[in-house]
Design a binder for these strands. Structure first.
Lengths: 332, 332
DNA sequence: CTGAAAGCGCTAACAT
DNA sequence: ATGTTAGCGCTTTCAG
């Protein structure tokens, strides 16, 4: 049997209440008794039982984190930001992968609420009404990290994907490209919708009207980037520039092009999205939209702590700044 | 206030015990009453409180996972393996980053034990006596994933790093290279020691006696690969092949070489370690040692479940198979 | 500043 | 097959 608060109390000749006070740093304890208790704790090797504490206090100091796939370089970076801030505020994290699967997501939300987490950070592709309903019934605060809810009814931290996309596309037109293609992510996610409309806006601004002729659907993976390039290369009036919805996919595009004998950026310019570490791990190095993944995670968690502590929050839907960084996959 | 088992009991006109039985799938319940209870649960929106359950049953169905850095592509893959199997066995995971910092590691172990995890998966660089002591005092099982404890006193899942290293180096010599360099990871970790001695064994077998002349210390990062190549290139009798302790660092070596005008593999062959997804995301594609990260994670977790269920385990120190895969960064 | 005592919501004997 | 009843280890009034 493990040593309990009761054992410590006896060993120190005080009541459990007093032990509880010193363990919790309550100032209302005479220094002498505090020391007695501390000694007893030391001697017995007492370690507070967080489960019992959680039951009594209704706080577990753990938050749930639902993530599409922790092995994705993008989400892993987000998770690190979340975890660092959680640690800073003395929370632990329960982490589960959803694979963007709606049933799994709903199930995980409920499972975590069952574990009595004090809050929830949610990352996903598509926020449906069902999601919103779950969040609103949740009894603990929820914040969305790098995932947009069109109704704006759930607190969130994001960048402006539409604007970022618009700017990137515009940059590419600014370099004299006649046609700019867009390799999208999975079509049914909110963020991808935003990216797409940013791309369309830039195109319309150019007075072009080819609609989705140069839009190719990918799934954010390296291989899908290669495949997308295969499609692109066979087009008549092949675009001389391509804006890609993720860095990893952009690497696929670059290598796909190079494998076909095209030079980057001379024959085709490519512009990525995210600025993951991959962007500098390729030749030519990748021009890309800087999305501060770590910060999004960190800010999400910080926002969540505010809700958990009932602090006042200025803005429930935070938009972090983004920027473009030009490297060698685009012409200078 | 949330609805409790007691509320359900009243609503269904049964005792809490019965409700508990149906919630836990105990077969000793008449179908009719089971239905009554299930209906009441549905009507009230009852969700069992895992914390109370944990206190009463002394099982939390959560396991702790201590990982150096979740944003590392290597560890993230391991984590995914762990999480998938955990989910399969109905466990949740509490995940924390240690940055390989010993104090943090010890602190995390204790913090997780305080949370009453049912088991622990530990990943780290160096297992000291202090670590082993903590593990042995732990009262719950612990398994090491992709981290070696030289005393073999803690259950673990690994590959044979010494042998893998030896084979890779030998392969490089087999291609007619006069000198083969080794870019190591941080010197003070057990796994790196094993890799190093595999390299030395291959060298000695060749009758070479240049000791550590061609060993350069890296830290597994891309940039350190680039730096290592800078050092290499200035050596007299520059090696024509280099074995690199991680894929990411190997990409740095390849690009460092290319940036200096060297051709890979013609001027310098490079061989990586891990077979992360990066290995195919570079040109030329990277020859490397295949370390099954996902499987190591999955098997670790599976092993842990065996200990948690008091199942018999055949071998407490599991060695998974590895192999070499030759791509285009080495000559054929 | 300290102690007594009542739960927190559930499981697990033990009865019946 | 179902109900009764002790706890699990801690926090939290409420007294003193």
């Amino acid at each position: 049997m493990n040593v309990t608060i009761y054992d410590v109390a006896r060993e120190a000749n005080v009541s459990m209440a007093t032990v509880s006070r010193v363990v919790n740093g309550n100032p209302n304890v005479k220094p002498a008794t505090r020391k007695k208790v501390l000694d007893a704790i030391e001697r017995l090797g007492y370690r507070p039982n967080a489960v019992a504490r959680g039951l009594a206090s209704k706080k577990t100091t753990t938050v749930g984190v639902i993530i599409p796939d922790i092995s994705s370089i993008f989400f892993a970076e987000l998770a690190r930001g979340i975890e660092d801030i959680a640690t800073m505020y003395n929370y632990n994290i329960i982490l589960s992968n959803s694979d963007q699967n709606k049933e799994k997501e709903i199930h995980l939300i409920n499972s975590m609420l069952g574990k009595q987490v004090d809050g929830l950070v949610f990352m996903g592709g598509k926020i449906t009404e069902d999601h919103v309903r779950e969040f609103q019934n949740a009894s603990v605060p929820v914040v969305l990290a790098a995932t947009v809810d069109e109704t704006h009814s759930v607190p969130s931290v994001n960048i402006n994907y539409e604007e970022a996309s618009y700017e990137a596309t515009k940059t590419l037109f600014g370099k004299g490209n006649e046609h700019v293609a867009f390799i999208s992510g999975p079509l049914e996610t909110n963020i991808n919708d935003q990216k797409l409309s940013g791309y369309y806006r830039a195109i319309e601004e150019q007075g072009k009207s080819y609609g989705d002729r140069y839009v190719i659907r990918g799934d954010y993976t390296y291989d899908s980037g290669i495949e997308a390039l295969d499609q692109l290369i066979n087009m008549e009036e092949r675009p001389s520039a391509v804006f890609v919805a993720s860095d990893e996919m952009a690497l696929g595009v670059i290598h796909g092009a190079q494998d076909k004998g095209l030079r980057v950026p001379e024959d085709v310019e490519v512009f990525g999205f995210d600025n993951t570490r991959l962007a500098t791990m390729v030749r030519p190095t990748l021009s890309t939209v800087v999305q501060p993944m770590y910060d999004i995670g960190a800010v999400s968690m910080r926002l969540l702590t505010k809700y958990m502590n009932n602090e006042k929050v200025e803005e429930q839907n935070v938009i972090l700044p983004h920027r473009n960084i030009e490297r060698n996959s685009t012409k200078s």
